[in-house]
Amino acid sequence: MPEITGYHAHVYFDAETQDLAQKLCEDVSRLFPVQMGRMHARNVGPHPRWSCQLGFAPDAFDQVIPWLMLNRNGLTIFTHPETGNHLADHRDRALWMGEMLKLDLSIFEKTNA
């Protein structure tokens, strides 16, 4: 069984919800041991919408995920573990809050097939 070394939660937004997403990301990173990434106003990596990445350790999962569930204000959040197998982490081991979107997993298929 792979070891989970951390988690990434990707908060998706668009031009209309960017301020809401930024506040959510800033709030969670202030309240919990969460590292907030940049607010990407473009699609990055496999993500089909603009997003901000939140990184956190396995021992913060039970605090961060419930808080996001209750405070996401209609935003879609995609969360996956970090095990070193990016394809499986994004395809098979992920959690969705809100709309389930299609990721572009082709960037991982050559490295983790």
Results as ranks from 00 to 15, higher is better:
Ser51Asn: 06
Ile65His: 00
Leu24Thr: 06
Val28Met: 09
Pro58Gly: 06
Ser106Thr: 15
Ala60Leu: 00
Asp104Trp: 05
His8Gly: 13
Thr17Asp: 09
Gln22Leu: 14
Phe32Ile: 00
Arg72Phe: 00
Met1Tyr: 12
Asp92Tyr: 05
Met100Pro: 14
Gln35Met: 02
Val64His: 01
His90Gln: 06
Ala21Tyr: 07
Leu105Pro: 10
Ala21Phe: 10
Asp92Glu: 09
Ile77Asn: 02
Met100His: 12
Thr79Cys: 01
Asp62Tyr: 01
Ile107Lys: 15
Arg49Gln: 09
Ala21Gln: 06
Ala113Met: 13
Leu31Pro: 06
Leu95Lys: 07
Glu3Thr: 15
His10Thr: 11
Leu24His: 07
Met36Phe: 03
Phe32Asp: 11
Leu70Thr: 02
His90Arg: 01
Val34Trp: 06
Asn71Leu: 04
Arg38Leu: 10
Met97His: 14
Ala88Pro: 12
Val11Thr: 12
Pro33Glu: 07
Met36Asn: 07
Lys23Leu: 13
Tyr12Asn: 14
His86Phe: 13
Asn71Lys: 04
Glu82Gly: 02
Arg72Val: 03
Phe32Arg: 02
Pro2Tyr: 09
Phe32Glu: 03
Phe108Gly: 02
Pro81Lys: 00
Asn71His: 07
Gln18Trp: 13
Pro48Cys: 09
Phe56Cys: 04
Asn112Ser: 02
Glu99Trp: 08
Ala41Cys: 09
Ala94Glu: 02
Met1Glu: 14
Val64Pro: 03
Met97Pro: 11
Asp14Trp: 12
Val11Gly: 07
Ile107Cys: 13
Pro81Gln: 04
Gly55Tyr: 07
Asn73Leu: 09
Leu31Gln: 09
Tyr12Met: 15
Leu24Gly: 11
Glu109Met: 08
His90Thr: 03
Phe108Met: 09
Ala21Met: 03
Trp67Leu: 04
Asp92Thr: 07
Arg91Phe: 12
Lys102Leu: 15
Leu20Gln: 15
Leu70Ala: 05
Ala41Gly: 06
Arg30Thr: 07
Ala41Ser: 08
Arg49His: 08
Asn43Ala: 00
Leu103Phe: 06
Cys52Gln: 03
Arg72Gly: 08
Ala88Glu: 13
Asp19Ile: 06
Ile107Arg: 13
His86Asn: 15
Phe108Lys: 08
Asn112Trp: 05
Thr17Gln: 11
Thr79Leu: 01
Leu103Thr: 03
Pro58His: 04
Leu31Tyr: 04
Arg30Lys: 14
Pro2Ser: 13
Asn85Cys: 09
Glu99Cys: 12
His40Ile: 05
Ile65Thr: 10
Val28Lys: 04
Met97Ala: 10
Tyr7Leu: 13
Asp92Pro: 10
Ile107Asp: 11
Gly45Ile: 01
Gly74Lys: 03
Leu68Tyr: 08
Ile65Gln: 01
Thr17Arg: 12
Met69Asn: 05
Phe108Ser: 02
Gly55Phe: 12
Ala15Ile: 13
Asp27Cys: 11
